[in-house]
Write a protein that binds this DNA or RNA. Structure first.
Lengths: 111, 111
DNA sequence: TCGTTTTATCGTATTATTACGATGTTTAAT
DNA sequence: ATTAAACATCGTAATAATACGATAAAACGA
């Protein structure tokens, strides 16, 4: 127990869940918002911006990179991160594909 | 340690993260998809549908209910669940508010 | 009333996540 | 060559999440 039974679910369900997991921490949301706002990609002055330890930020960045939401480029001494636009679009489509499936239920309650 | 420092982040960031957490498990994604497809709200024949134990399904349903994504109505012996349309719309807006902030970066790489 | 069905909750074992200090590596500047 | 700055990774402590058996409560039918 304590282990998610991924084999019970479809590829899409697991994929969606994994992507959602990337958004499921306020620090990662903050990092993504920071990247969205600054376009010009950033490294970890996120440490100063967010108030978390350097190792912690690095860990969150790795998770975002592992699901493909961001990408990193070496830039001299520092590591420059930015949103991966292709993946970002895919994520948007995947989530909206689910969001849009809601059916109109007249006025008020559905059940 | 091991405890998320919510006080470091904005209300919106924490809210988005909490909602994302609801989507961050394939069983909950599957439950939501099932509800979206059947509109006519369901109880736990999700147990047979998903292959998880009754207690586990109940736990996932409670989490979805706690964030407001679904609502439950007593219907005789059973409990009938359905999507909460108002919340669903809010979630969609919250996520798209973030998704849409991506800036066009010409062709190819952004950084 | 008695038994059945449905579901919520509790207790608990297992695994995952979060956070950070310490350490090592790489790059640039002096 | 030394020093400093920027990161990633390791190790680890603390906490959260996942899954399920067991149990209890509520509603209905026989």
């Amino acid at each position: 127990m304590g282990l998610t039974k991924t084999d019970l679910f479809t590829k899409e369900q697991n994929e969606l869940a994994n992507l959602a997991k990337a958004f499921a921490h306020p620090a990662r949301v903050a990092i993504l918002q920071y990247l969205l706002a600054s376009n010009k990609c950033i490294n970890s002055d996120l440490v100063h911006e967010l108030g978390l330890a350097q190792a912690t930020i690095s860990q969150h960045l790795r998770e975002l990179k592992n699901v493909g939401l961001i990408q990193g480029n070496i830039e001299g001494v520092s590591m420059s991160y930015c949103i991966n636009p292709e993946k970002w679009q895919k994520v948007q489509q995947l989530f909206n594909g689910m969001f849009d499936k809601i059916q109109d239920c007249g006025s008020g309650e559905c059940c």
